[in-house]
């Protein structure tokens, strides 16, 4: 028996040691979640506008184009309204005191799901926000095994090493999506742009495949998401912060494949929210000013598109401020 236990301990020592080394490395890394949140807190006294949402807003709204109001992009890939709300509340609690406007991105697939999937844990490491009743004990014990998983860890390490070899500098932060798509690697007010247009993915089959993942499931969380969003709007309005719902442009050919029933439900819900809480919704989904050259893929704007869109958004916001007779500057 002693021999068995001894052998088991010897056998487990090596993987245990390696796991600890990986955990130490992961914990010491600056991820996009940490970077975004920490930069936000660093600019807490200046921030007047926050952009929330998933990758559409993350890559679609360039805060540097907002000349009149200091804007920060707090959106992130797959970020749901559930996390939008908690991140904003957290930011306000931590001293973001001049906030006047919060842009909440409502997309084709925003209103029926609250989870970010495996990103729930990755974002938790960066900003500490937990998802509902999800347990984080194991993820805290070992980010390598139960957080990022070995596959993601090795991909992050590879990225880090390649960056050091190619650019002879340390990575500022790790973006878990980096490498999948082309983009600049420096965050400006929380924003990073996608570069160019990936023409190979503009085709009917890929539109349909992509939309399969955005179909409202039978166990839709629509009611609870809407309630959460409603509470969030009330929270903001109570603090004299104006919430604005908005939708980023998506490619016109891709829009033809969207499910009309799902779109109709979304529109009705947005209309209901606007009426109930007396707020505005700025929908640019089918805006014909955006051509294929403005998109990286069917539903994400590229550098050029985000610049164009952000100017439109910024101008409209300035007009809105003036017509509301506000003097927020």
């Amino acid at each position: 028996m002693k021999k068995f236990i001894k052998r088991i301990i010897i056998f487990l020592f090596f993987p245990f040691l390696l796991t600890n080394i990986f955990d130490y490395w992961l914990r010491s890394q600056n991820t996009i979640y940490k970077e975004k949140y920490n930069s936000l807190i660093a600019a807490k006294d200046s921030i007047q506008v926050i952009i929330l949402g998933n990758s559409h807003a993350n890559y679609g709204v360039d805060p540097t184009q907002f000349k009149e109001l200091y804007t920060y992009n707090l959106a992130n890939v797959s970020q749901s309204i559930y996390f939008d709300k908690r991140l904003t509340i957290n930011a306000i609690d931590n001293g973001v005191s001049n906030l006047k406007f919060v842009f909440i991105s409502i997309d084709y697939h925003s209103l029926f799901t609250s989870s970010q999937g495996y990103r729930n844990k990755w974002s938790y490491y960066g900003n500490g926000i937990k998802y509902k009743n999800e347990k984080y004990l194991l993820s805290n014990i070992s980010p390598f095994l139960w957080g990022y998983t070995p596959r993601v860890t090795f991909s992050l390490m590879k990225k880090n090493i390649l960056h050091r070899i190619k650019k002879k500098s340390k990575l500022l932060y790790i973006d878990i999506e980096d490498g999948v798509i082309n983009k600049a690697d420096t965050l400006k007010k929380g924003f990073v742009a996608l570069t160019g247009t990936n023409y190979s993915i503009f085709n009917e089959e890929l539109y349909q495949n992509r939309l399969k993942g955005f179909k409202e499931p039978n166990n839709s969380e629509r009611d609870s998401v809407l309630k959460d969003l409603g509470d969030f709007i009330i929270y903001l309005k109570n603090r004299e912060i104006t919430p604005i719902l908005f939708t980023t442009p998506t490619y016109v050919e891709y829009n033809k494949y969207l499910d009309t029933m799902q779109l109709c439900r979304n529109n009705l819900d947005v209309e209901y929210l606007c009426k109930k809480y007396n707020i505005e919704s700025w929908d640019y989904m089918s805006d014909n000013r955006f051509t294929i050259l403005d998109f990286y893929n069917q539903d994400h704007l590229n550098e050029q598109g985000s610049q164009k869109f952000s100017i439109i958004l910024s101008n409209r916001l300035s007009l809105y401020v003036r017509t509301q007779n506000n003097t927020y500057k």
């Binding site: 090596f14 095994l145 998983t149 596959r151």
Partner: peptide, 13 residues
């Protein structure tokens, strides 16, 4: 042990 580690690694991976 290397064989076992490989199997464990595949399981985790």
């Amino acid at each position: 042990y290397i064989m076992y580690y490989t199997i464990i690694f595949a399981i985790i991976w």
